[in-house]
């Protein structure tokens, strides 16, 4: 026997609607958490990433220990899937620190609350946002749309580097936009591959300097966090899962535009609603306050309606709403 379970409050209903699958998706949310043993570096990296991503409620940072999370084991990833569902986050950053893998950061993506892929990186050198304190003057606006610069041939040839590139883009790109104000172009993530299988991750502010031409001269200021990382394990999605997750709609349904229609003769026709105009009270309507009626009108009004007082304000403004073309 089945029964319908519905949200009990409007708020819960709105939350569920927000989480529902959509054709044009929400910005991916990230969950940042760490395991039972961590280091100052790992904690710092997590809080810095949270600082970058938190605008618009797009990051959830958990600062308590989390047991039994081992992303690269099938059973060990189950708690992450559960957390992903609970917090509605499809991106996960899991930090840990052990003798075997010191300062370990695992970036993960989820599709339909199930693991899509994982990428493990070891932090070798880390400079936090705080340590870059001097550059605060130029620090980018919160939640601004970032640019990305990937430098190095490895980002095409090496599998792990390719995954890193896609992962970083997915993490930080924010909302998809079709228009952008170039004055607000103020941050860039620079990722450089090295010959020693390292990847250098820099978060920089963009300064647009005068160059005498239409295009300004770009100056980058490192605002942190700066990370030098090495690749460790990774897990890629199966071909089937990848295909499933990459599915798109060829033609998104257009939202219906109300009160606008097209006419053979007139072309585009709009329908507007106007309140019924009462000429007698026009002056008071225009100014939004009670005004004296013109003497001539007042006399006639008093004659007609037998009113002793002036026409009251409420009488004027409560004109019936009429539909006019």
């Amino acid at each position: 026997m089945l029964r319908v379970v519905k949200p009990k409050t409007k708020q819960a209903r709105r939350v569920l609607e927000k989480r529902a699958p959509k054709i044009k998706e929400n910005v991916k949310k990230a969950l940042l958490l760490h395991g039972t043993s961590t280091s100052a570096v790992v904690k710092g990296v997590l809080s810095d990433l949270h600082h970058i991503k938190k605008d618009g409620g797009n990051a959830v940072h958990w600062t308590r220990k989390n047991e039994n999370i081992r992303p690269f084991e099938p059973a060990g990833a189950a708690p992450l899937e559960f957390f992903s569902k609970k917090t509605d986050c499809s991106l996960v950053v899991f930090g840990s620190h052990s003798k075997k893998r010191p300062n370990n950061i695992v970036f993960g993506r989820f599709y339909d609350n199930h693991v899509y892929d994982f990428m493990e990186l070891g932090v070798e050198r880390y400079k936090s946002v705080k340590d870059h304190g001097g550059a605060r003057k130029f620090s980018p606006q919160v939640g601004s749309k970032p640019c990305f610069a990937f430098i190095g041939e490895a980002f095409e040839s090496d599998e792990k580097c390719r995954q890193f590139k896609e992962m970083m883009l997915d993490f930080f790109r924010g909302e998809e936009v079709d228009r952008i104000n170039l004055a607000g172009l103020d941050r860039v993530f620079v990722c450089v591959a090295t010959a020693t299988k390292q990847v250098l991750f820099r978060h920089c502010a963009i300064r647009l300097m005068k160059s005498g031409t239409k295009v300004p001269q770009i100056v980058l200021v490192d605002v942190g966090p700066s990370l030098d990382m090495v690749f460790r394990r990774n897990q890629t999605p199966g071909e089937e899962l990848r295909k499933e997750a990459m599915r798109t709609v060829s033609k998104a349904p257009q939202k219906k535009i109300k009160n606008v229609s097209s006419d053979m003769m007139d072309g585009k026709v709009g329908r507007i609603y106007m309140p019924k105009q009462e000429v007698r009270c026009r002056a008071s309507l225009c100014h939004g306050r009670e005004t004296r009626l013109f003497t001539g009108w007042r006399d006639r009004a008093e004659e007609n309606e037998g009113l002793k007082k002036r026409a009251s304000r409420s009488g004027c403004s409560s004109s019936r709403r009429g539909k006019e073309r």
Partner: peptide, 13 residues
């Protein structure tokens, strides 16, 4: 996506 990719650069060697 405001993304640039320089594949000609070998990176830092």
């Amino acid at each position: 996506n405001l993304l640039v990719f320089d594949a000609t650069d070998p990176g830092i060697e």
